[in-house]
């Protein structure tokens, strides 16, 4: 086959294809208006006349009411047990503690010197009162981003936990949780409040 013949051949096919494509397009457009017009008249909506040319119909699907409630949940939702749900609410509340909080510098998780006597007293208590388990909560101030602060709070709790282990507290009695910046002790928005909120808090279980 010569080069010219090949090109002519291609041009003819391209032409045919374009006619075909336009033909299809026209047919589809008309079809979508028509079907849509009939679809748009659900039995609940009466007296909807046929959509005029150029007006396309669309039916919106209702969305399930997505919110859970405490009492009733949508079918299929994994129910938290009553005890779990209560634990979830309880997580937002400030727990009383036998110990003072220890505090941290901004964006830091190092144990400061002023925290060491407090950690020593926590360690002494746990050694004397075997069977007591301790939850170490890590907290941050409101500055910075909440995801980063969640991880930073975890580091603070972990620093305190490791320090207690280094003082001889059995690792098995200690657990940690971070609340990031979600649970400020002081609701203020100044350095005094922030300093109080950058803390590890100890809750006996």
């Amino acid at each position: 086959m010569g080069k010219w013949r090949a090109w002519k051949y291609c041009a003819v096919i391209l032409g045919v294809m374009m006619i075909f494509a336009f033909g299809c397009a026209k047919k589809q457009a008309v079809k979508s208006t028509d079907t849509a017009a009939t679809e748009s008249a659900p039995s609940s909506v009466s007296a909807v006349e046929k959509a005029p040319e150029g007006v396309v119909s669309e039916t919106l699907k209702p969305e399930a009411s997505a919110a859970e409630t405490m009492s009733s949940r949508p079918a299929g939702t994994q129910m938290a047990s009553a005890a779990e749900a209560a634990a979830g609410v309880s997580a937002t509340e400030e727990k009383s503690s036998l110990f003072q909080d220890i505090h941290f510098d901004f964006d830091k998780s190092l144990i400061r010197d002023d925290a060491k006597p407090i950690l020593a007293s926590v360690s002494d208590y746990l050694k004397k009162n075997q069977g007591v388990k301790l939850l170490v909560e890590g907290h941050c101030d409101e500055r910075g981003t909440s995801e980063y602060n969640m991880a930073l709070g975890d580091r603070r709790a972990e620093s305190a936990r490791k320090y207690l282990v280094s003082l001889g507290v059995p690792a098995a009695v200690l657990s940690t949780v971070s609340f990031g910046e979600e649970k400020p002790l002081d609701p203020g928005h100044n350095e005094e409040a922030w300093a109080k909120n950058r803390r590890a808090h100890f809750v006996a279980k």
Partner: peptide, 26 residues
Amino acid sequence: RTGVPVVYLRNLRDGKERALVKFGNT
């Protein structure tokens, strides 16, 4: 909601939900 952080997947169409990430802490 259960006292410890868990990542859930919530289908907004049908309200169904399941826990996806439970390992680790934060």
